[in-house]
């Protein structure tokens, strides 16, 4: 895996969401990702950044263009130092929410992107990594 471009954005308030989404769009467009794939990636990114704001008071996102086996893609790493998730398996289920919401963010995001990984430690924070390839699906 080769990292070609790298950028970090701090997400601390709701107003950071739209500029962040635009940055993701810029990166996805730069590698020539199709419109549908761009939309999927940006929507996933929007969900994850909202979770970060809602449950962890913000955090930071690493935006990278990566290359692996002749494929190019965008990798986003959402890092927060919030309360962590007690039961990740449960949080990944459709409809599970501690925030009286729809509980769609995490499972929906996983469906939208090509690769999805979540690591969470109670009291330390949560890191979610997603990759969407230029020609993914």
């Amino acid at each position: 895996m080769i990292v070609m471009t790298k950028d970090t954005m701090q997400i601390v308030r709701e107003q950071d969401v739209v500029p962040f989404r635009n940055r993701v769009r810029e990166y996805a467009a730069k590698i020539g990702m199709s419109l549908v794939n761009q939309t999927k990636l940006i929507t996933a990114a929007s969900e994850l950044v909202r979770n970060m704001l809602k449950y962890a008071n913000g955090g930071k996102v690493l935006i990278e263009i990566i290359s692996k086996n002749a494929q190019t893609g965008v990798r986003l790493t959402f890092i927060d130092e919030g309360p962590g998730i007690a039961n990740v398996q449960q949080a990944m289920q459709d409809g599970f929410s501690t925030g009286k919401s729809l509980g769609l963010g995490l499972p929906g995001t996983k469906r939208l992107v090509n690769e999805f990984d979540i690591k969470s430690t109670l009291g330390e924070g949560t890191t979610v990594t997603v990759i969407h390839w230029k020609n993914g699906r």
């Binding site: 549908v36 939309t39 999927k40 929507t43 459709d94 729809l102 769609l104 499972p107 929906g108 939208l112």
Partner: peptide, 14 residues
């Protein structure tokens, strides 16, 4: 609604 948005909403499950 743009087609890409519609496709994405379905996959998201909304």
């Amino acid at each position: 609604m743009q087609p890409a948005v519609a496709i994405t909403l379905v996959e998201l499950g909304l």
